[in-house]
Design a protein around this nucleic acid. Structure first.
Lengths: 231, 231
DNA sequence: ACCTGAACACCGTTCAAGT
DNA sequence: ACCTGAACACCGTTCAAGT
């Protein structure tokens, strides 16, 4: 787009407008390689051949930089979830695919996922664009559940409440998987992840495998089988 | 036990053996009041009227102190879970009570909970007493599920796998609740927590409210209702 | 506008030295 | 044994000054 003739860029050239994106990219790279706690503004400056305070022209502080990192993550995350849901033809298979993709994203980008959900950035950083992108990713799940309810596959009721439960379950699985806390002998992680997502489905499904509808939840359900006395 | 006559303790007396516990107590207090990231070894020293390096006589480093904090937390946690399970008479009610108690503990001690599960301490700190106590708390859940399987209330299969799923779901709910990410308009947190634990139960229950047994999970279940065409 | 270098206030940790 | 004070290497952030 520039009309000026291309010119050899000196090693110490100013970044002139590209610096903001360069800072975010470098932060992502460092986080991916060494984790969030290894990210220092000084090192970012060194990597970019820039003073360690140049960053403050573009971000209020370190948290604001992390907010930008998280915002970029949410964008890719939302697209991955949406693609999985539609690619699997929606329905039950779409739900399972979305759940699996969620956890796969976290396992592939553990540090990035932690920045997005680990409370490193408070809700009102970066003009709350962070919160907006996060909400957009969450809405993929809410919309999917509404559609599944319309198809009669998911139990009726407040879709937001259902979505929060599903999110929490899958998020918990992702966090524990990232932390290595699901690694046990004789239990494959992939198998466990698939099993977990299926159990979440059973938790929200309108029908179970018998083909009969569930009753609505109520405070004190009649017991299906007599309870064994223990003690 | 001491044979020496009680004696006025000078303000700057050495801690002589009590220091280790005093350090842990002070750390817990600071964490509870201001969060993990506000904990500095220097401040712990000031609060205890002790040099800021005195701590290194009892702990290898800051992580080891945090491991001790987490270990104490796991002990209280395990007792709370066990009490809830037995106090509610085990069975389905015991499961729901244990789940509710789990999340309540996290909400009552958010920073302490983060130290226990947030990856602040690596698995092999403090001679791995940390890992041992964490495992003991987890076993309360595993044992409960085994008992529920014997009662015919929970679907058969690997109890460890089931327990990992239940743990992940409840942990995710706890983490999001702590982070304020479950706070939405028109959805009460208490109600949502109860709802989530019930959905987890539905995910692992052997029978649903129709009183009919589930089939075993298999890769491609016969669809209960025809799927609606959308798009 | 955009970038810089020196300086400030804070960390965790080490170590020789004291009782 | 247990504790101390000075010192080291490292942070994020501020600010007057340069182009």
């Amino acid at each position: 787009v520039s009309t000026a003739a291309p010119q050899r860029k000196p090693r110490n050239a100013y970044h002139h407008g590209h610096l903001r994106q360069a800072l975010v990219d470098q932060a992502v790279q460092t986080i991916r390689a060494d984790g969030v706690e290894a990210l220092t503004l000084r090192d970012v400056g060194v990597q970019l051949r820039v003073s360690r305070t140049a960053l403050y022209r573009h971000f209020a502080d370190k948290q604001a930089l992390l907010a930008a990192v998280a915002t970029e993550g949410f964008r890719a995350f939302r697209i991955a979830l949406s693609t999985a849901w539609e690619g699997a033809g929606r329905g039950r298979a779409g739900f399972l695919a979305q759940g699996g993709t969620y956890i796969r994203f976290a396992l592939d980008n553990p540090s990035h996922y932690r920045v997005m959900f680990g409370g490193y950035v408070s809700k009102d950083d970066g003009e709350s664009e962070f919160a907006r992108e996060g909400e957009a990713a969450f809405r993929v799940l809410v919309d999917a559940l509404i559609e599944l309810q319309q198809q009669g596959l998911v139990r009726p009721g407040d879709a937001l409440q259902l979505a929060l439960f599903v999110w929490a379950s899958v998020h918990g699985t992702a966090m524990l998987a990232i932390g290595g806390q699901l690694r046990r002998r004789d239990v494959s992680l992939d198998e466990l992840v698939a099993f977990a997502v299926e159990r979440v489905w059973d938790g929200v499904a309108a029908y179970n495998e018998t083909g009969l509808p569930r009753r609505q939840a109520r405070p004190h359900a009649r017991r299906a089988v007599p309870r064994a006395r223990t003690r």
